[in-house]
Amino acid sequence: MDIIIAEKVNKKFKLKQGQNINNNGVASNQIEVLNGFDLKIKKGEFLVLVGPSGSGKSVFLDLVGGLSTPTGGVVYLDDKPVEAPSSKTAYVFQQYALFPWRTALSNIEFGLESRGVLKEERVKIARELLSLFGLSDFEDRFPYQLSGGMQQRVAIARALATKPEVLLMDEPFAALDAQTREILQNELIRIWEGTETTVIFVTHSIDEAVFLADRVAVVTARPGRIKEIIEIDLPRPRNGELRSSNEFAANRHKVWGALKTEVNKAQQDWKLAPQFSE
């Protein structure tokens, strides 16, 4: 069963006044980020989006999350078009975006607060999640007192606290160092394998994509659409040792094969349009 269906999704952005972009020799003040983006996401799967910078992966997450609406086409969540943020989705951002004046515990409570969950229940759920991430001793810490990895654990816990059907993760580990990143991937996969949550995960790291995903969707250079979907045939439950296996390397090779030409295209595009930046 498909929980999310994107049909012929198109998204254009107006550039700021005075900026324009060169589209095959035609100057335009609009930038087309997604065009003809079709994707079906199965309930409970871990889908990873990879693609060159500027190919609209994050924009697609915003559309699913209801933070932005498509210029054309429809995104369905549980057969209903997404028009506004839904309580079925939760979001994890690259820059953690924790509330600096809230403690770890209180940050995790946030999503539940906006849904009107009572204090006692909120604290109970938040404590469970802290312990799941091994952060029980840090519940009274403010974000500045936590390392980057801990902050992102809190941000993921904040998302999981709402028991989302769909978890949207926008390069959540990109700002972390390589070791912490692997540890968090392991933790995420361990925790996710115990849930029925559908995850849409955006990354630039092919290793990360292969390690986490059931399927990797490769997005083309801008304007983005799905180029190819690669089934990752690695067994679950997965753990860190998988990374050094031959099967892992074979899957990695498949993904890179599909991605390579798009990255090259995107590089050319950047040369043509130096005035555009994300």
Binding site: G65, L67, A84, P85, A90, A97, S114, R115, T162
Partner: peptide
């Protein structure tokens, strides 16, 4: 933070 808050409805 506004983005987060909006995402959580």
């Amino acid at each position: 933070l506004i983005h987060v808050a909006r995402a959580y409805g």
